[in-house]
Simulated scan of single mutants.
Amino acid sequence: MTPAQIALAVLAALGMLALAVASLFIFLELSAVHLPRLAAPAGLTEPEKAAALDAWLDELERREKFNGTILVARDGRTVLQRNIGAADTDGRPIGDRTSFNLASVSKQMTAFAILLLEHEGKLSTGDLLTRHIPELHRHGKVTINHLLEHTSGLPDYALDKALARRLEATAMLLTPDGLIDWLAAYPRAPDFAPGEREDYVNSNYVLLAEIVARVSGLSFADFMRTRVFTPLGMRHSAVIDRREKEALLSDRAFGFRKRFLHAGRPVRFDLTPLDGLAGDGNIYASAGDLVIWDQALRQGTLLPAETYARAYRPVRLSNGEIVREKVLGETLQPGLGWNVQDMPVVTAYGRWQAFSNFYRRDLVQGTVLVVLSNSGFFLRTAMIGERLAAFLSR
């Protein structure tokens, strides 16, 4: 063979190898999100539905499709809880009291803290950001409302790969002060004027947590502990970040994944150098505590229910247009940490590292569905939640 023919043969072989690898990856990805069928034919009795659900959960466990906890409650009473898999790479079993990183499900709790302080007259959601964080004077038209509604135009620290690489290289941890410095020095102008558009940005809720801290005189973690979790009896909930309090919970789930994505031994996939922050995530809770939280919101235990109802209203832009987002072909209408397009049903999703979560509350029927995973694919966890919701509503 001539050198040219050899080169062509090598290129062809490499092309076939690349195609084979890509095909294998696609197959594994599709297999990962493929779930066994969960059917509820008309006419099933409640015991028969319970048996069908148990069999489906058994199949999820057998096929290793889920690692975490699933809970169903009605009117504050748990009617089903199933714990599957391990809380860490050592195989510690998940229990009823295991606390999971809620990731973005945390945001609705951060919004609650802001609304609580407003109810007490300690701030107004119409306040300019600079009233509470004057260091961000370049964003002088942004209000607390803009942060709550993701209409601020600020950049998202969690999507900045250069920032993540710099933190990793210098072994530094991103703290609220570091985030404020990053925002103050960010080289690009905002993508839009506050209120003009909606863009889901984690930085917004970190700043809200910092405002809670500055207004209350407590750290965000201490505020949530003393003003929310302890009064409500949420004994397995806490704000945890890498600055402090990492050992605060006795039964904390740690994120992990398989070493080679779909194969290999389990390896830690938990907090990162970005996790010196909270508010956008890093609130931990057990599934049972989320039932307590649901009841507190319904009953107005800490904040009148009619005041908190604002969190369920769809976000509107400054021109009055209701925000609608397209996610995986579905249209979502965001509220304050909730998806509210299906009112009176509200949902929240979360994903960070190996954690993926689904939280669904029916405000009329009084039902709660919690799906928390510390080792799973976000899409698969969301699909499990949606299939459970459809099954339980039949």
Rank of each mutant, 00 (worst) to 15 (best):
V364I: 00
T230K: 08
S23Y: 10
D275R: 02
Q81M: 10
T170S: 05
R37D: 14
G385Y: 05
Q5I: 06
I6L: 08
L277Q: 10
R97C: 14
F355C: 14
T98P: 12
F66W: 06
M109N: 11
V10M: 02
L80N: 07
L317Y: 01
E118Y: 15
R361G: 04
T175K: 08
D177C: 04
Q353Y: 07
P231A: 05
E120F: 11
A86R: 05
W338N: 00
H262W: 10
G255V: 00
R82N: 04
L274R: 00
I240E: 02
K107A: 12
F66Q: 09
D289M: 11
A9R: 08
I283N: 04
F269C: 02
P3G: 02
V267N: 08
E306D: 11
A40F: 03
V212R: 00
R313C: 01
V340I: 13
I211K: 00
R214G: 06
D75S: 11
L19I: 11
L11Q: 11
R351N: 12
V315Q: 01
G153N: 00
N282C: 11
P314N: 15
G126Y: 04
R97V: 13
Q108P: 12
V267F: 10
F358L: 14
V21T: 11
P231E: 11
K326S: 07
L14S: 01
V315W: 01
V346M: 06
W352S: 04
V201F: 05
L35V: 05
S318N: 14
V79I: 04
P190G: 05
